[in-house]
Design a protein around this nucleic acid. Structure first.
Length: 513
RNA sequence: GGCGCUAUCGUCUAGGGGUUAGGACGUGAGAUUCUCAAUCUCAAAACCCGGGUUCGAUUCCCGGUAGCGCUACCA
């Protein structure tokens, strides 16, 4: 049977790395086995679901590099025979099967009020008993239940769970067994007629012919409830089943991703939504690669860099680890630096431009000249950043120059107080300012000259020059930075880039005082 | 409280009845005749605890502990 897997997020917020990893593993499994990847939207929690998140969800998944054969954005004629793919549009289905289940005696109306149940729960807790539904309405004669219901009494529908252990083979965790008396009779339909999660998933997964349920291990304890639903459905007389046999899918429960403090990863841990990573200039291939290695490793385990196709090739559920993993932004950054270096410079530039713009360093639509220059800037600065959002900070040596401030800086003062510093700067300025533009040749010649006349070299030669030119004793290669400074000074920018000549002038003036 | 899942360097992990317990990130040191970064080289760094099984357990079993999850008319 062809593999069919699904990713079923709730549109209650931005897509989170934890969920993204679940989606990725499902996708990898589908692609590896030439199966079908289904996207289903679990929006039954009307209070928290928002339509706008659905579009963002799909955008985020695509950004990561994932695609799907069936989903809410697919027209009925383009595959998607198992739709609709929004739970909110499947209500009739849930209700129909609930009726069948009641007719078959596998489910029953429950007239207990939430308050009542809450009281029972508290009593059970106080007595140290299992906090599950007491089964109060279980024994109600069906005829009585129906007439009460028809008389307008509100009722939920509960599953009658048989008294037998529920066992399954988890593809990741191995054999898992639950006793029926820890689950009680779960709610199928709420009293407002909507489906509860543990019921809706089963109807959906069953009807959609899902063969492998790959999801977070927070669902492990829900699995027996869902199994009981499958079993009840499978016992339904065949005309009622839409040709679905309600066979149990295979389950694979993925370990949780934790934050550095060992608690479940959440917004408290800072940047965790895909949208946020995208804005920060994390490359999607870096994130996908990193996420794949969180909880999965190839056999052998000594390879780190995988493209999406390579992951598909290497992926298997057997190699998925059972223990929870801590999300490590430092390693993500290492991976991102790797991919940043590998990437086509034009692509990196395209991603960097909006970031420079947001920082106010460039204007609205950069022309060809500016683009070319910016490309040089990015190339020079790239090895120094973890992600693209750090570019503007690094680029301050180009876009900003404040002689007085750099002279006042403590670190700089130490360098400037060195015996040869003044001589170096004066000598360099004199040489460098001979021409209007400081070319690389001129720059090198000037340095050479100063080196000879002052007998300073290494740090004591370069650091004062750096401070005069950029305001900082350290930074990128000077002979690459200088031409960029000069070229930048000839471009239209929101705040003009100062030329080397101007910088030296301002510096010397400020230093006199 | 009950039930479940998990446990190898700080972190992600490989491995598996006998190994110098491997790799990667990070950290430290060194190299690279401009610093910083990058890069390269080297180094330090781990089998949660207690029982059992066994000639031999980090590996298998049991218990403990810890972390996490579920215990909803949330998903």
């Amino acid at each position: 049977m062809a593999v069919r897997v699904r990713f079923a997020p709730s549109p209650t917020g931005e897509l989170h790395v934890g969920n993204a990893r679940t989606a990725l593993f499902n996708w990898l499994y589908a692609r590896r086995n030439r199966g079908v990847f289904v996207l289903r939207i679990e929006d039954t929690d009307v209070e928290r679901s928002e339509a706008r998140y659905e579009g963002q969800l799909m955008q985020d998944l695509r950004w990561l590099g994932l695609d799907w054969e069936e989903g809410p954005d697919h027209l009925p004629d383009r595959g998607g025979a198992y739709g609709p793919y929004r739970q909110s549009e499947r209500l009739a289905l849930y209700q129909r099967y609930a009726r069948e289940l009641i007719a078959a005696g596998s489910a029953y109306y429950c007239f207990c009020s939430p308050d009542e149940l809450e009281k029972d729960r508290r009593a059970a807790q106080a007595a140290g008993r299992q906090q599950i539904y007491s089964g109060k309405c279980r024994a109600l004669p069906p005829a009585e239940a129906i007439s009460r219901k028809e008389a307008g009494e509100t009722a939920s529908v509960r599953l009658r769970v048989p008294d037998e252990p529920l066992r399954f083979e988890d593809l990741v965790s191995g054999t898992v067994e639950f006793s029926p008396d820890v689950i009680g009779d779960p709610i199928l339909l709420r009293s407002n007629g909507t489906a509860a999660y543990n019921y809706a998933v089963v109807i959906d997964d069953g009807l959609m012919q899902i063969t492998h349920v790959i999801r977070g291990d927070d669902h492990i304890s829900n699995t027996p409830r869902q199994m009981a639903v499958y079993h009840a459905l499978a016992r339904l007389p065949s005309p009622a089943t839409d040709g679905c046999d309600w066979r149990l899918p295979q389950f694979a429960h993925l370990s949780t991703i934790l934050g550095p403090d060992h608690t479940r990863l959440s917004k408290r841990h800072g940047v965790t939504s895909l949208a946020h990573f995208r804005e920060r200039g994390i490359l999607p291939e870096a994130l996908a690669n990193y996420l794949a290695l969180l909880g999965w490793a190839p056999s052998g385990g000594d390879r780190e860099i995988f493209s999406l196709p390579e992951l598909v090739e290497a992926f298997s559920l057997e190699q998925v680890s059972r223990s929870p993993a801590i999300f490590d932004p430092v390693k993500l950054h290492w991976m991102n630096r790797h991919y940043l270096k590998q990437s086509d410079p034009e692509r990196v530039l395209d991603l960097a431009i909006p970031i420079f713009r947001a920082a106010g360093q460039i204007g609205e639509s950069p022309g060809e000249d500016l683009r070319r220059w910016l490309r040089g800037v990015v190339e020079l600065l790239l090895p120094a950043v973890d992600d693209l959002s750090q570019l503007p900070e690094q680029a301050r040596v180009i876009f900003e120059y404040d002689a007085a401030a750099s002279i006042a800086n403590d670190e700089n003062q130490q360098v400037l107080a060195e015996p040869g510093a003044r001589q170096v700067i004066e000598g360099f300025a004199e040489q460098a300012q001979q021409d209007e533009e400081l070319t690389v040749e001129r720059f090198r010649a000037a340095l050479d000259h100063v080196k000879k006349t002052t007998r300073q070299k290494g740090k004591s030669l370069f650091q004062p020059v750096r401070i005069a030119l950029t305001g900082s004793p350290s930074g990128r290669q000077l002979d690459r930075l200088v031409p960029l400074l000069e070229a930048g000074s000839r471009l239209e920018l929101p705040k003009p880039v100062k030329s080397c000549r101007q910088r030296l002038m301002e510096f010397q003036q400020a230093w006199q005082r």
